[in-house]
């Protein structure tokens, strides 16, 4: 037993005697690393905001147009422009934008005239559970099936899983959504076809019922691509020297796979997981539209239609922040699993 454990770390680490709790001993480099990453995150966010500000102003149209209607006279148009500040010089608009951003004040919507942040929070109450639950469901589907299809690649079901997953990658997410609505909502009447209860999470059963089909939709599509990654990572592990060595040292096949394989296979899969989770967050736009969910994605679409700059900037700021955070966490996770990564970064800084 103890021989095997040493071996696990001996191979990737090049050192012996290390343990999973070894992080505690290496706290300092990890902290430096986190600080560096947070600084990078901050500057990426700032850069994203500046680019966004410029791109938005390049779009044709004027947010004031969302406030007027056919029949509006010149005074009303001027009043609308004054109200949204589109009559101000660009430099001044930019200065206002940056100063309020630094104070973490996302401002007030031009169109709904309500503060941006509380609405984003309301919308996140739909989008975050949708994304996270879809992601977890996709993992539950993809991990066992991916490993199974790699291990049993020579059996018919191993091949079948692989083929079906390839099909899953090819179909667009909205199409899956429409199919599920047709089947489970319109014909079988098992789940609502869309919408979100007016009281939201105060009625948790209703809320979960409305989220079921959207979650299933994302999970089906996401698990297909995840499964491909898990499958190929597992195949790599299966062909690796260390697994053969472990087997040679007397470990059973599944024991060797669980003990050594998962940890090694997890490293590439984890970075993919981060990307997939971020994609799911942004890709929720489409699913929210199909299922008529009041999430962050539908808020963004509407805001773009209306040229509601504070809302667009607010949503993109928060989602950029979330995506950067996810990337950061995925990176951190990889480092926790794979000491080699910890080492190299720690040594350089």
């Amino acid at each position: 037993m103890s021989r095997l454990r040493r071996l696990t770390f001996a191979v990737p680490n090049g050192k012996t005697g290390s343990d999973f709790s070894g992080i505690a001993l290496r706290e300092a480099p990890i902290l430096v690393y986190i600080a560096r990453r947070l600084a990078i995150l901050f500057f990426s966010l700032l850069a994203a905001c500046v680019v966004l500000f410029i791109l938005l102003r390049l779009l044709p149209g004027d947010p004031a147009n969302s406030l007027i209607s056919v029949g509006a006279d010149e005074a009303q148009i001027a009043a609308a422009r004054r109200q949204v500040g589109s009559d101000l010089p660009l430099a001044q608009q930019f200065l206002q934008f940056i100063t309020s951003l630094v104070r973490f004040d996302l401002g007030t919507s031009f169109v709904s005239r309500t503060p941006v942040l509380p609405e984003i929070m309301d919308r996140l109450a739909v989008t975050l559970p949708l994304t996270v639950l879809s992601f977890l469901l996709a993992l539950v589907i993809a991990l066992p099936l991916g490993i199974l299809s790699a291990v049993k690649a020579d059996r018919w079901y191993g091949a079948a899983i692989s083929v079906v997953s390839q099909l899953g990658i090819a179909i667009p997410v909205f199409w899956v959504g429409i199919l599920l609505v047709t089947l489970f909502a319109v014909n079988l009447r098992l789940f609502p076809s869309g919408g979100f209860p007016p009281r939201g999470w105060d009625t948790p059963v209703e809320a979960l019922r409305t989220l079921f089909l959207p979650i299933l939709t994302i999970a089906i599509v996401m698990s297909a691509s995840l499964l491909r990654y898990v499958r190929s990572a597992t195949q790599d592990v299966l062909g690796s020297d260390y697994l053969r060595t472990a087997r040679a040292l007397g470990s059973g096949f599944s024991e060797a796979l669980v003990r050594h394989g998962i940890r090694n296979g997890a490293v590439p899969v984890m970075s993919i997981l981060g990307i997939e989770l971020a994609t799911a967050l942004l890709g929720a736009v489409v699913v929210e539209r199909v299922f008529n969910l009041p999430g962050l994605g539908s808020m963004l679409l509407l805001a773009i239609e209306q040229r509601d700059y504070p809302n667009i900037q607010g949503v993109l700021f928060i989602s950029t922040l979330l995506v950067l955070l996810i990337g950061f966490l995925a990176d951190l996770g990889q480092r926790l699993v794979d000491p080699r990564l910890r080492e190299s970064r720690g040594a350089r800084s």
């Binding site: 609505v181 909502a185 319109v186 009447r189 609502p192 076809s193 869309g194 919408g195 007016p198 539209r289 199909v290 299922f291 008529n292 539908s298 679409l301 509407l302």
Partner: peptide, 20 residues
Amino acid sequence: VTFSYFKEATALNNALLTGA
């Protein structure tokens, strides 16, 4: 009364078809 808002006519029709 509850006014439920839709962006897509198809989603709205489905809501009526399914009794939502």
